[in-house]
Amino acid sequence: MDVPIQYYGLLSALLFSMGVAGVLLRRNIIIVFMSIELMFNAANLLFVAFARHQNGLDGQVFVFFVMTVAAAEVAVGLALVMALFRSKQTTDVDDASTLKG
């Protein structure tokens, strides 16, 4: 039995909202990081679900691009977190406040 497309949409929207809430509410840089990944993967789920629903391949190909890009982004992001951690010994986003604003 096929799962209706709406369920995938609902789950994906839920994951996306969790990601957004995590970025906005959590103060630990690593958790914020994971929340952003959650947003990306929510979009991936949507792509795959729609690709299946429409019997197309575009969505599935897109997911590969997203995963590649996300991997590159993680590499750069973690390097930046490491650099700041070396200078400030913290992973709390509120401590990154040398620049006012």
């Binding site: 996306f16 990601g19 952003i36 930046l80 650099a83 986003v93 406040s97």
Partner: peptide, 18 residues
């Protein structure tokens, strides 16, 4: 300052990319 700028740009950039 520069590290912080990079990190802020990264997080808000990745957030908007989401």
């Amino acid at each position: 300052e520069s590290e912080e700028a990079g990190l802020k740009y990264f997080f808000l950039g990745a957030f908007s990319a989401g």
